[in-house]
Design a protein around this nucleic acid. Structure first.
Lengths: 254, 254
DNA sequence: AAGTGGTCTAGACCACATT
DNA sequence: ATGTGGTCTAGACCACTTG
């Protein structure tokens, strides 16, 4: 059962052969074991993990090695560690989304979770750009959600979400909650781990401007987001048109 | 000389008094010592640091504690660690800037360092927004550099850099290199450690459009960057108007 | 061969939260 | 008082680079 034995074998083999890049440290293999448990739903969001000592004994490595694996997962926002309490699986609550995924901030205030008003939910064959973004085979369908998100009643973002129907079958039937990532997690067991955003400046056409209650040709920030699952596969494509008259996109370069 | 003694004293004092948040781990104090050496120019960019063992012996802590301090500094891109070679002070070469500070990438390619054509260098009293951004006292002056940056001969960014004259005195006299952060470091001993960018979508006025060789009212990405020094104080304000017709701003959400 | 950072272990003790 | 994560130490060994 212990990963330890596998590891030592792996290491000895690599050392004997001298393959230049065939080395994976023990704590990364332990980390992979933990990621697999997250993927398999063994530790669903909100769960408290066993203590470091228990995990170390179970797997057959030292507590320090378990610690290093858990530390990396916490750095990736997949786990939350709290001194004195324990280690927990991160949830997609509003706090986390605001911190990790929502970069649009009012100029004068602090980030808040916007309201959502759904315009349309539909299923259709994936367009070329959706196929490419989501890595779909030709012919696959997507579920599209179009909605306007507002802050204090003022429209701020016009959003089009594209989802692989293969993964999210049935989503188009029910109501669409404000917090989509929470739904992916709770109903489909899909954890959004990180995302890549591409930003451009555009001007709104008549229809878009109408939905956002501004003049045609108003400039807007176009965000093309691809959200990636725990295993690195794309699970959502989201196009957002954001009004930046009284808000901005915040990017911290470290 | 050893920090160790100071530390233990600090720890005992805190334990005795029971101040709730008065605890600073040893490795953070060691880290602060290293940051101070970077600030003081004891270890200029490119320098190779003494080995972990030497540093541990000098300061009077264990090698593991030194290691944890160095690891944090490497994670902040202030140091570069290379197995078998040593630990080095990070330099502001084009590779680092491209990786850490330059987020505008061509839609079809990979990020490249753009050419630069200076329009104007001038000194003037700081405007209200510059005062606020740079934390300047009223009456202080700034040096302004205005330039167009191009990729393959095509204008891409119209940039206005504002610098505290107090820090960068004399900069307006000499030539302005393409890589400004390298100049700050080499000539003024100022290390840009990180930055905060605020993005908005705007449309270009006639003058801006002319300088970028596009039509008036073309949409552009406005980036308002404040660059922070090692000690967290603002040292540069940079406004960039970016054409996003064939390029985009890349933001990775992790 | 020697020197560097990287990994792994084992054990002691500290800070924090809960019971 | 107990259990958790967080820090610190000491030592062994591994992987990588350079002479």
């Amino acid at each position: 059962m212990s990963v330890h034995k596998l590891e030592n074998a792996e290491r000895r083999g690599a050392a004997g052969m001298g393959e230049p890049l065939g080395f994976r440290p023990l704590y990364r293999q332990v980390k992979a074991v933990f990621v697999q448990r997250l993927l398999d739903g063994v530790w669903p969001p909100g769960t408290g993990l066993p203590s470091e000592g228990q995990l170390a004994a179970e797997i057959g490595v030292s507590q320090g090695t378990v610690r290093k694996a858990l530390d990396e997962l916490a750095a990736e926002n997949l786990l939350v560690r709290r001194q004195g309490r324990g280690t927990f699986v991160a949830e997609h609550d509003e706090r986390r989304i605001l911190f990790q995924f929502f970069k649009l901030v009012p100029d004068d205030g602090v980030a808040r979770f916007p309201d959502s008003s759904v315009l349309e939910v539909a299923t259709a064959p994936a367009a070329a750009d959706e196929q490419a973004a989501l890595g779909l085979p030709p012919g696959d369908s997507v579920i599209r959600v179009r909605r306007v998100r507002s802050l204090d009643g003022a429209p701020l973002v016009l959003e089009t979400v594209s989802l692989p129907q293969r993964i999210f079958a049935g989503l188009e039937a029910g109501p669409v909650p404000n917090n989509l990532y929470g739904l992916y997690s709770a109903r489909y067991g899909v954890t959004v781990a990180n995302a890549r955003e591409r930003l451009k400046a555009v001007v709104l056409d008549a229809e878009q401007a109408g939905l956002l209650a501004v003049a045609t040709a108003t400039p807007a920030l176009l965000i093309d987001r691809i959200a990636l699952s725990l295993d690195g596969s794309p699970v959502e494509r989201r196009l957002s048109l954001c009004l930046t008259g009284e808000a901005h996109y915040l990017s911290d370069l470290r």
